[in-house]
Amino acid sequence: MNNTNNNNVIDVCEQSDCCKRPQNYRASVDVIESSDAWTVVADMPGSSSEAITISLEDNTLTIDAAVADRLAAKGRVRRQEYGVGDFHRSFRVGSGIDGDAIEATYRDGVLEVLLPKSSAVKGRRIDVRTA
């Protein structure tokens, strides 16, 4: 699981050093693998595309979404069933990601990060020709 030497890996960090941020909320994620990319989908309601930071450094993919304290701006809190604050999530990844080609979209409070596989780890289909 911790083997980042493996190019073909993306692992969710749980209690490891890379995500010790108790002040942040843990976003729920889906991680989907296709033949040419990994996609991370994260629930991060109440943020904005400008307030989201995605970084890939030392085999760690980090996603941070800043969330403004919208409760205080609206009035007095009468009942609070969930906290409002920044979302964070990190992943250990192999070197098989084409870092320059990462794309992200934020819509309806859901962040989608597309992590294209580098050509080294993409499965290549080799056509067999008849002699």
Partner: peptide
């Protein structure tokens, strides 16, 4: 879903996080 309830002089505001809901 969890709710937060906020009030001010004029209104009651009920808030819920519903990511990905159209």
């Amino acid at each position: 879903p969890a709710f937060n309830i906020i009030e001010n002089d004029d209104s009651l505001i009920i808030e819920a996080e519903l990511p990905g809901v159209a």
